[in-house]
Simulated assay, not measured.
Amino acid sequence: MSYKKFFSIFLFCIGITTLAIFCNEHVDPFSNEYPIKSPITQEGYQIVLATTDLGIGENRFAFIVLSDKGFINRDYIVVTFYATANHIHESKNTAQFMYWDDLNRGSFVANEIFPYPGKWDFKVDFVDNKKDISINGTFTVNKKTVAPDKGDKAPTEKSKTLDDVVSFQELSTGNVIDLELYRHSINEAIKSGKPTVVTFSSPAFCRDETCGPQVKVLQKLSTRLNPSMNFIHVEIYNNPVELQNDSKSGLYSEAFKKWGLPSSQWTFIINCIGEISHRYQGFVSSEELYKTLRFYITEEGIKNHCLAT
């Protein structure tokens, strides 16, 4: 075979492969393992890490602790972080337990600063049944997060609203649809000059232990804080009606793809000038969200985040 013929076939194959990737909307964007699970200890304990998209700087670090009897609930748990690459770094923190609203389960949350990229180890220590328990796990810190980070401009993609559909069922895979969460698209909300809370999720298709009833949390906070801020739910699938009948037919929505999210459930707070101020991978309780949102409805919060517009 001549070099020119071989090279032509090579380019043709690359073109076909590329076309298939871009045309096939069924390709799963979640290329990395999610969630990250630690090995199960001899006593039957395991950590499920909800926050895997971590970058240099301050991060929300959220995880679930499981035993052979179910979820571990404690007010606080001690977590220690160790850099494992070319840096010597050890940091001990306290992770607070956050109940998942009406569910008898929850996750532990700590805010931690990671100064270096690369592989990290962590150890969780607590007491259960009068025994000292330690669980070890690993995770990766990237130089830059995959999903939009704090301080980034929020992508101004149009999300599906009531004006774009014939039936409410086209807006979400959930059973209960709060119309207020679909009044505005993301780009409209950003231009409104109000803070905006955006949740990306598919209620009927929670994939893992870190996924929870996020839309119900959004409904609760929307009732409490509207009209001071915008609340938007973005269904991650573009065809929720078809998906209910065929779970393999899901096509990801344009807004979800535009934001480039590496897992299926995210919540973002966007300030009045269109910047992301907080982000939450996995489920976030109404208690944890409200601790941040209440700042935006105070005089100081309005002055710092809204008057600039």
Rank of each mutant, 00 (worst) to 15 (best):
G70F: 10
H233P: 01
S277C: 11
D178F: 13
P195G: 03
E209F: 13
V79S: 06
L171I: 10
K194V: 00
Y34T: 03
N24S: 12
V176I: 12
I135D: 08
E58Q: 13
F61G: 06
F63L: 14
K150A: 10
S202A: 15
G174L: 07
N93T: 11
A110P: 02
D152R: 02
S31G: 08
V217K: 02
A308M: 06
T223R: 12
D28P: 03
V79R: 06
S247P: 00
E288Y: 09
N93D: 04
F268V: 04
V78P: 01
N230H: 11
T94N: 13
S277H: 12
I190P: 00
K158G: 00
G151Y: 08
R74H: 14
I56F: 01
W259R: 08
E33H: 05
Y280K: 03
R183T: 11
S134T: 15
T173R: 04
I14M: 11
I186T: 09
N59L: 09
S192F: 08
E170D: 15
I113Q: 03
G282T: 03
R294Y: 04
K131P: 02
S222L: 00
K248R: 14
P155S: 10
A255F: 05
T18A: 14
S263W: 06
A189T: 03
K257Y: 00
F256K: 05
R207Q: 14
N136V: 02
F205D: 08
F122E: 07
F295A: 01
F114Y: 11
V165K: 03
G174D: 07
S222V: 00
Q96C: 04
S91P: 01
G137L: 02
P39G: 05
P262F: 09
R207G: 08
A20E: 09
N187V: 10
V284Y: 01
F231V: 01
P195I: 00
Y296Q: 04
F231S: 02
F122P: 08
T140P: 03
I64R: 10
P148A: 04
A189R: 02
G44Q: 11
R207N: 09
N238T: 01
K5C: 01
K4P: 13
P213G: 00
H233E: 13
S67L: 06
D53A: 09
D101A: 02
S201C: 05
Q281F: 06
D75S: 11
Y237C: 04
P39Q: 10
F10G: 00
T199L: 14
D53L: 07
N271E: 14
G174C: 11
F30L: 10
D128S: 15
K258F: 06
M98P: 00
E235T: 03
G15S: 15
V197N: 00
V165A: 06
V109S: 13
F114K: 03
I276G: 02
R60V: 15
L243P: 03
P227G: 08
C13M: 07
Y3D: 07
